[in-house]
Structures are given as C-alpha cells and as structure tokens.
C-alpha cells in the first residue's frame, strides 16, 4: 500500500518542540520546507550529517523546525557562517536557506563570493519579492512598479535576477522554480543536494501578506496563479524568447569544489611547496 505523504516528512521535524510554526497560514515557506525534506529523503542524507544554516527573516526561521544540526545566524550572513562550518566539516551536507533580502541586499556580497569560491553548499533562496518579516518593505527583487510599505508610489528600482546573479558569480549549479511547481521544485532540490559545489535553487514563493495584499494578490491562491501564468519552463522559453520568468535548471557544469581544493593546499603546505607553481 502506498504510504501517505506525511510519513516522509514527520521524522525530519522537531514536532514535539516547536509547532505550531511562526509562518502565516498559506505562506510559501512551508511548501519550500516540505519539498526540501522530500528531496533530502530521496537523496538519503543522514540527519546527523546535515546542517541547516539560515539568516534573518521569515525564511530564517526554517531551521528551528527540522531535526538537523541547525544554525540561525545574523541577517545576511548565513553563507559566511556556513563557509566556516563547511571548511571545518567538509563531510557534512550544509544547506543554507535565505530570503531575497537576506541573500541579495544585506548578504549580496557574501552570495557573490561564496559562489565565486564554489564552496560546497546547497543554497535555497526563497524569493518572495518583499521583506516579509519586517512587514512588506521593498526588496532587491521587488518588481518595478510594485507597491511596498516603503514604495507606496510604486517601486522605481530594477529587480535583481537572483539566478543570473548566481550564474555570473560562477555558481556551477543554478535552478529556479516556484512553490506552485512543487514536483519540479523537489527534483531541482534533489539535483542541488547531489551537486558537489555551490548549488543554488531560487524558489519564487508567496508572501501574500507582505507582497500580495499590497499588489492585488491578497490570497495564496492569487499568488500561486501569478506564478503559474508568469513563468515558463526554460526549454520552451528558449524557443519563443518569452517575457516570462524562466524555470528549470539554468546552469549545471563541473567545477572543482573549494574544500576539496583546500585539501590540496594542505598537502602542498605539508610538502613544503610554498610559491611553487601548481
């Protein structure tokens, strides 16, 4: 008999301790968490060997609910904490969860450099196009013309494309999906978890409370519909040069991973090979 879905999820949650969660009913963060756990389960990672690191924001609250080694850091700095942890314990699967403000505004520099180093982290950026936790202010990914509590006359700035930023900074794996396309999202997460280097999954998500209500999409359903209508799989889009947001695995290439390279540095140092060409 086929087992119901929640059987997969429950062993990964700190159920007895921290529920109900802090997120608004219908928030996309829960869908991201569910997808991530199912992907982890499919890849077969051990809970003891997983660290989940987050920054500050609604997204940043995710680690408290999961039964891993969990670290809730400061706003924007999750990747930097994770970099130290990964160097100390290269054998661990370190998953970093960030919001769009966390990853692209205050933490934008860390994002660029962690990608450039290609350190082996699985990076989930929940892009809800707004600052959720602080109540709906503009974020670096808020679309031009959208409203926010700090842009009541309409946002005059250009939004940043997180996936293209990751690609430009050198990430060897970049994928984008939405909380509407859950099965697709899970598969991307699975691929990202299996990738050796810096693997980014950008997830378009609904903050119907912070973003939706100010932009005529006050319900989760309205926002999920928006995701369905305004995104298209990459292959199709390639053919028709669509104005829609591309979904899919956007980058997948091989690059040597940082902690593996550092092991080589240690070997060279111990062999006394200072300033000798590689």
């Amino acid at each position: 008999m086929k087992q119901p879905m929640f059987h997969t999820i429950y062993p990964y949650l700190r159920a007895s301790k921290k529920f109900p969660h802090v997120w608004c009913p219908g928030c996309g963060n829960g869908i991201v968490l569910g997808s991530l756990i199912r992907a982890i389960d499919r890849v077969g990672l051990s809970k003891d060997n997983i660290a989940m690191v987050s920054g500050i924001g609604c997204s940043g609250r995710m680690p408290v609910y999961v039964d891993f080694n969990t670290l809730h850091t400061t706003h924007g700095r999750a990747l930097a904490f994770a970099t130290g942890l990964k160097l100390a314990r290269p054998e661990m699967n370190v998953i970093v969860v960030m919001g769009d403000g966390d990853a692209m505004a205050i933490g934008g520099n860390h994002f660029i450099h962690a990608a450039r180093r290609n350190i082996g982290l699985t990076v989930i950026v929940i892009n809800n196009m707004i600052y959720g936790m602080t109540g709906g202010q503009c974020s670096p990914t808020t679309p031009t013309g959208s409203f926010a509590t700090t842009a009541v006359y309409g946002n005059i700035e250009q939004p940043l494309d997180i996936s293209r930023m990751a690609e430009a900074a050198g990430a060897p794996f970049v994928a984008r999906s939405t909380v509407f396309h859950v099965f697709e999202l899970e598969k991307m997460m699975e691929k990202a978890l299996n990738k050796e280097g810096f693997a980014v999954v950008e997830v378009l998500s609904n903050c119907h409370v912070g973003y939706g209500r100010q932009n005529d999409m006050g319900s989760p359903v309205a926002m999920l519909n928006w995701m369905r209508e305004n995104t298209s799989p990459r292959s199709v889009q390639d053919g028709e040069s669509s104005a829609k947001i591309a979904r899919g695995v956007l980058v997948d290439k091989d690059l040597p991973e940082y902690t593996a390279l550092y092991d080589e540095v240690i070997k060279r140092a111990q062999a006394g090979a200072m300033n000798t060409p590689l």
Partner: peptide, 8 residues
C-alpha cells in the same frame, strides 16, 4: 561569521 561557523 566564518570563525563562529568553524568553531561550531
């Protein structure tokens, strides 16, 4: 941040 992560 990296120092704290490594210490953990």
């Amino acid at each position: 941040a990296a120092v704290i992560g490594a210490s953990l």
